[in-house]
Design a protein around this nucleic acid. Structure first.
Lengths: 197, 197
DNA sequence: TATATTTAATCGTGTAAAACGATTTATTTC
DNA sequence: GAAATAAATCGTTTTACACGATTAAATATA
């Protein structure tokens, strides 16, 4: 039993889906299957009931889930406790689109500032093209992006959540009369899209 | 950070020796070095001070040690809790001299296996000198010894039976002619003794 | 002081574990 | 019945890990 397996199990349990878990963990679905299988083999029990293509967690799975949560919390505790018990000082330079920042950052900043009052947070804008370079060079420490996937070695990438894309039209617009709008309906329409710059 | 690394670290911390830890973990010393190094790299701190060939644990190492202990306990808990309190499963590592084992163990193993078919019994050899350490560290669960008394805190000791010590000599030997043999008679004689190793 | 021994780090190599992509199978939805 | 979805399976490749030999440094011993 290893941490990685427990984490994989926890994410599968969260989504009750191997595919979704694979997405979130940035790995192939087959690998998720393999990890769960190895856990089940080692503990000699079933963690999920696979009824058709539906995934249900077993009683044993539920128990393991609680432990997995506790252990994950504990490892986080280790990192913060062991690496730096003192108070953390310094500065973080963060790139984030304004649209995201205005919605999500207030709460995050408040909580972060509560834990780390000596850390200064600098939010900056920069062009998307320069982003990789800026991360690699170390000029920025952290970036929040609206994208489906990004892969860079030397840079840690984690999916935090997914945002739905909603089509909004005025009441007078022809599309407002339709119950369903298909992508093709947007042909020749003028559409306003968010840009991350 | 993985369980295996934490366990390796814990054993090194117990012995304050990479080589001893390697022995106990049944792996090469170089592998122990590598695991500790990977942990130190990941946490970005030193866990041990290597002063010459002396190994001292750092403050950060001490903190990690406590967590490692707790996490190891918790995983043991997982196994017993999750797999089910019903039939007992697991493994017992037992140290016993071969001479004792060949005489007494067949019957014991047969009975025990009948009651607990899911418990694996591992019989191992190890040097008598390491025994206390092995029991304390938990690497072995049980030991059978040919000795008159042994006292260790944290370890339960019970006398099971006493074995007579019989002197055996060839018919041509001078001692074979005596009705009684006193300890002093063994002076300057070559005697073969059982050793527990 | 010279020599032997002990101990951890390092390096190159081989093996075992793990991730991947493609495919198959079973189930659900339309 | 056809299409879509989701997990399992299989073969391949990549990565991680353990190993043994060696080196370097520090003690112990002669």
């Amino acid at each position: 039993m290893e941490f990685r397996q427990l984490r994989t199990f926890r994410v599968v349990a969260d989504h009750l889906s191997f595919s979704r878990a694979a997405e979130q963990l940035f790995m192939a679905q087959s690998s998720v299957s393999a990890q769960i299988r190895s856990l089940e083999t080692e503990l000699d029990l079933k963690l999920f009931d696979r009824i058709g293509r539906r995934v249900l967690i077993t009683d044993a799975g539920l128990k393991l889930y609680e432990y997995a949560r506790r252990i994950e919390e504990m490892t986080d505790e280790i990192r913060s406790e062991v690496t730096g018990a003192k108070d953390v000082r310094g500065a973080l330079t963060i790139r984030i689109p304004e649209t995201l920042a205005s919605v999500y950052m207030p709460e995050v900043v408040e909580r972060f500032y509560g834990d780390n009052p000596r850390v200064k947070l600098n939010f900056i804008n920069c062009s998307d093209l320069q982003l990789r370079e800026e991360l690699n060079s170390g000029r920025i420490d952290l970036a929040f992006l609206l994208t489906d996937a990004i892969h860079m070695k030397e840079v840690n990438v984690r999916m935090l959540r997914s945002e739905g894309l909603v089509l909004v039209a005025g009441p007078a617009h022809s599309l407002s009369r339709q119950k369903k709008v298909m992508p093709d309906d947007l042909h020749r329409q003028t559409v306003m899209f968010p840009r991350t710059d």
